[in-house]
């Protein structure tokens, strides 16, 4: 029993830790993305791209993936092949090159297009709901499942002890029917 609880807790911990890990990695997005950059943006043949350029490119694409393309519903300006999206991408690049922070660039686009331009709602105030509700359901659901499994197995343990023992013995014979060894039947 305690084992299954442990297993569930482990899965839960993994699930809950993941967004945290993500949040941490988000802080390092630029750095991470920068390390990928040589693959993402090949230097032109013969030419070279300086480290600063590839950092800029990586920051641009990371930021551009969070901004919504106004003419092609649902796609980011990083993904969209549309002309406006390409131009907005170059605005992002220029702003970053001019030394603005990600937050400032985002604020610029919000001031022009409204919050609508962000593909992921800003995580504060009312918007927290959209992040919190699934987590509540997960935590509540895990609690419910643990409770149910506990009560269902408790009944079985509570029943006649002999039944459990008999089942264990019979299990040797009957289990292959439904258990792992069924391929032989």
């Amino acid at each position: 029993m305690s084992r299954v609880a442990l297993g569930i807790v482990a899965v839960a911990a993994m699930l809950l830790a993941a967004p945290v890990a993500r949040a941490q990695s988000a802080a390092q997005t630029a750095k991470d993305a920068a390390s990928q950059a040589p693959a993402a943006v090949r230097p032109p043949p013969g030419g070279t791209i300086s480290a600063a350029d590839s950092v800029l490119e990586a920051r641009t694409s990371a930021l551009a993936s969070t901004l919504r393309c106004p003419v092609c519903q649902g796609l980011s300006i990083q993904d969209s092949p549309s002309e406006l999206a390409q131009q907005m991408r170059s605005v992002v690049r220029d702003h970053l090159a001019a030394g603005k922070t990600d937050r400032e660039v985002r604020a610029y686009f919000i001031s022009k297009y409204g919050e609508w331009i962000l593909l992921s709602p800003q995580p504060y105030g009312f918007n927290l709901l959209v992040y919190a509700l699934p987590v509540f359901l997960l935590v509540g659901g895990l609690g419910f499942v643990v409770m149910k499994v506990r009560s269902w197995t408790a009944v079985s343990a509570n029943g006649v002890a002999a039944e459990g023992a008999a089942a264990a013995i019979a299990g040797q014979a009957s289990e292959p029917e439904q258990g792992t060894a069924s391929p032989v039947d």
Binding site: P70, E83, L84, Q87, Y113
Partner: peptide
């Protein structure tokens, strides 16, 4: 580059 268009949130 549509800079003004983007400035106006087109």
């Amino acid at each position: 580059g549509a800079r003004t268009a983007i400035d106006y949130g087109l």
